[in-house]
């Protein structure tokens, strides 16, 4: 474990908690893309299948449980508990254009042609594009609540920090996973536009508004 990975995990966890609290406290999922949250639930499910078979550490197992449980809870709140506030008209990104190519790619490019490894690879590829429906929805509505932009910032920073974690691990642990690194780069690049707006607008107290 290194500081970059730890801060990355904390950033990821806080993003998940911010979103859960935003929906639960405001009893509304306005401006939140249910499709992205569905994709995240798929990402965690396909990535943590080894949750019961491969014990790494208490930290690793407990974080995995929290991630899976909170992603399902978020999907449940959006599509069931507060579905009256779900803005389906603006959450129109075609997720099949994300799921099918990443599924095919995970069969073609992976470290080992075994079910668990292919599912892990699929989850890595899917995670790199899972935020697109949410970013698409923000651009369609032309704006995002400030709390939603904090959620997006924390979520984007987590994988950026993981990039530094992989540099660190390559340097000091001879650890190198090209699939995770390339997908992590793609994921981080997708946030660049948002990062720019967040830093130039939200941090100055303005509302996040995208040119629609």
């Amino acid at each position: 474990m290194n500081i970059f990975r730890f801060l990355g995990d904390i950033s990821h966890l806080s993003a998940i908690i911010i979103l859960l609290l935003k929906i639960w406290k405001s009893r509304s999922c306005a401006g939140i893309s249910g499709k992205s949250q569905l994709l995240f639930a798929i990402v965690f499910t396909t990535r943590y299948l080894d949750l019961f078979t491969n014990f790494i550490s208490f930290y690793n197992t407990s974080m995995k449980v929290v991630y899976v449980a909170s992603s399902y809870a978020t999907v449940w709140m959006i599509y069931s508990k507060f579905k009256a506030t779900y803005d389906g008209n603006h959450d129109t990104f075609r997720v099949e254009f994300l799921i099918v190519p990443t599924a095919i790619l995970s069969f073609l490019v992976n470290h080992d042609f075994t079910p668990l490894e292919i599912l892990w690879t699929f989850s890595i590829y899917l995670e790199s594009v899972a935020i697109l429906p949410q970013l698409f929805m923000v651009s369609k509505t032309g704006e995002a609540e400030t709390i939603t932009s904090h959620y997006l910032f924390a979520l984007g920073i987590y994988r950026t920090l993981y990039l530094f974690n992989w540099i660190w691990r390559y340097q000091f642990e001879e650890f190198f996973d090209l699939i995770a690194i390339v997908a992590g780069l793609v994921q981080t690049v997708l946030y660049c536009d948002f990062f720019y707006l967040y830093i130039t607008k939200v941090l100055k107290g303005k509302k996040l508004s995208l040119p629609a």
């Binding site: 990975r5 995990d9 990821h12 080894d50 491969n54 790494i56 690793n60 974080m63 995995k64 991630y67 470290h111 080992d112 490894e117 892990w120 993981y162 974690n165 650890f175 190198f176 996973d177 995770a180």
Partner: peptide, 10 residues
């Protein structure tokens, strides 16, 4: 095939 990197990350 080359060694699969260990899966100790979240």
């Amino acid at each position: 095939d080359e060694e699969t990197p260990q899966k100790d990350e979240l």
